[in-house]
Design a protein around this nucleic acid. Sequence first.
DNA 1: AAGTGGTCTAGACCACCTA
DNA 2: AGGTGGTCTAGACCACTTG
Lengths: 239, 239
Amino acid sequence: MPRAIYEGIYRDLKGKIQEGTYTYEDFLPTESELTAQYGCSRNTLRRAVSMLADDAYVQPMHGRGVRVIWQREGHSAQGSLSGVESFVEFARRNGLTPSTSVKSFEQVTCGSGLSRRTGFAEGVELLRIVRVRSLDGEARQVDHDYFLASAVAGLTPEIAEGSVYHFLESERHMRILTSKRRITVQLATDEDCSYMDLDPYNCVAVMENQSFNSEGVMFEYTQVRYHPDSFSYNLVSRR
Amino acid sequence: MPRAIYEGIYRDLKGKIQEGTYTYEDFLPTESELTAQYGCSRNTLRRAVSMLADDAYVQPMHGRGVRVIWQREGHSAQGSLSGVESFVEFARRNGLTPSTSVKSFEQVTCGSGLSRRTGFAEGVELLRIVRVRSLDGEARQVDHDYFLASAVAGLTPEIAEGSVYHFLESERHMRILTSKRRITVQLATDEDCSYMDLDPYNCVAVMENQSFNSEGVMFEYTQVRYHPDSFSYNLVSRR
DNA sequence: AAGTGGTCTAGACCACCTA
DNA sequence: AGGTGGTCTAGACCACTTG
């Protein structure tokens, strides 16, 4: 694997923090020690450290050193859906059986309302897919996907029962490079109630998502409506 | 102001994208053109561009160029609380009158349950503050704050009615450098219902937050419980 | 083949912290 | 004063895309 040097150093340091070689509130060795240790330039090492800082594993302190701030089980994890993990990966990791039921699979033209909501240009052809996803038979989320029709030619309802991304990556050689997300809480719609076990006055967590492919073109808008018990989202911010 | 060069370039390019000098799906000038334009080294320019990419303003494409992916009103913004903006800033921007009522202000010792929830070590002294925050008289969120008591000496209920961060920054010369967050949706507690206008079967959006100061020490755990109508969180992810 | 972004190096100077 | 991280430069080579 032709991995970048900074990537290797990043993984190595991250592993050492997770394993306890460096622990909470320790200082990492200094930059000059680490560059000597890894036999790389200072810039390359700094890039790796800055990635660790982005992950909130570490906090560099000017004039003092680089302090570890990662804690095992920092925010103790409940068994709930992480926003970054795929549905199937989450299920596998927790020993649950995932299943997907395609409720809708149709081509639509993007009208003005849809354009404002999704960010697609008016008039473009979209493929609309609605899927209910369950764990051990319990409906946990409803996915509303809109794909640029031209980008997903060949997609069938059968494929949509599995992973659309796998299809896009292996068949269409497409990669998601960037995505913008928004999380809100909304009152459950009648549709939500009919798909998931919810009462009309319940709320759902809604994650909207715009994805851009390697061409820099937005090709997907997704709205995932989560059963409130199944939603958890972790993130980090700096500065 | 001794701002960094990359910071200036970053802001300039960001402004040009927002103003429409470069628009959605355009390519930026090439790196060599931009380095000439700004009279800086390639590394410095690349750092600025990489920050724009982190913000999903731009997507660099190997061998082709750097494409703008920012859209005005991409995910159309509703009038709702953003997770990154402070409560007062949000109110001001939307012409609403913010108010805060301190419901609790007391010192507690961190027990095992609290330690697991918050990430503080067992036995440390904490200052617990509960505040209800309203916009135009309507209660929108309840803040449960736990501060390392030693870090916030001198804090009073009167100060807590305003901005604790302002106190920490100007009086205690403390800065938040990193924070880890988690967002979940929970059933409203009796306390939530009594503070905000909610029924027992309603949900609240909960944002938990651990903050680290410039010493790399966690000094704050906050749990903000949002009225569902007042919650919106925007974020970006790459790769 | 030419042009683009991606990675890496070596060396310089600065700003901050501790003593 | 000495050590640490923060910024910046100049130049090299590589990998990908396009004609």
